[in-house]
Amino acid sequence: MILPTKHLPPRRAIISVASEVHLLIKRRSTVSSIWNNLQEQHKTSRRVGEVSYDWFILALDFLYLMGKVDYEDGYIRKVKS
Rank of each mutant, 00 (worst) to 15 (best):
D61A: 13
Y64T: 13
N37Y: 06
Y75I: 02
P4G: 07
S81P: 15
W55A: 13
L24Q: 01
R28A: 14
K68T: 05
I14M: 08
P9H: 05
L38W: 05
K26C: 13
R28S: 09
L58S: 08
S81M: 02
V69D: 09
L8V: 10
A59I: 04
L3A: 12
G67S: 08
V69R: 08
F62C: 11
G49I: 00
N36H: 07
I76M: 06
E72N: 15
M1L: 12
E40R: 08
V17A: 00
V48F: 00
L24D: 04
R11L: 10
Q39I: 12
W55V: 15
Y75N: 02
P4V: 03
T5Y: 04
L65F: 12
R11M: 09
A13P: 04
L60Y: 01
Y75T: 05
H42R: 15
K6W: 00
R77C: 13
F56S: 04
V17P: 06
I2G: 13
P4M: 06
L3E: 12
Y53T: 10
H42I: 05
D61K: 14
W55E: 15
S33N: 09
W35S: 03
L63Q: 02
K26Q: 11
L63D: 06
E50L: 14
T5D: 00
L23P: 06
P4I: 00
E40K: 10
S45M: 11
Q39S: 10
V21A: 05
K43S: 12
I2Q: 10
V79T: 11
Y75R: 00
T44K: 15
D73L: 10
S33C: 07
I57A: 03
V51S: 02
L63K: 03
A59P: 08
I25F: 06
V48M: 08
L24N: 09
H22W: 11
G49N: 00
P10W: 01
I25H: 05
V17T: 07
R28L: 07
T30Y: 00
H42P: 06
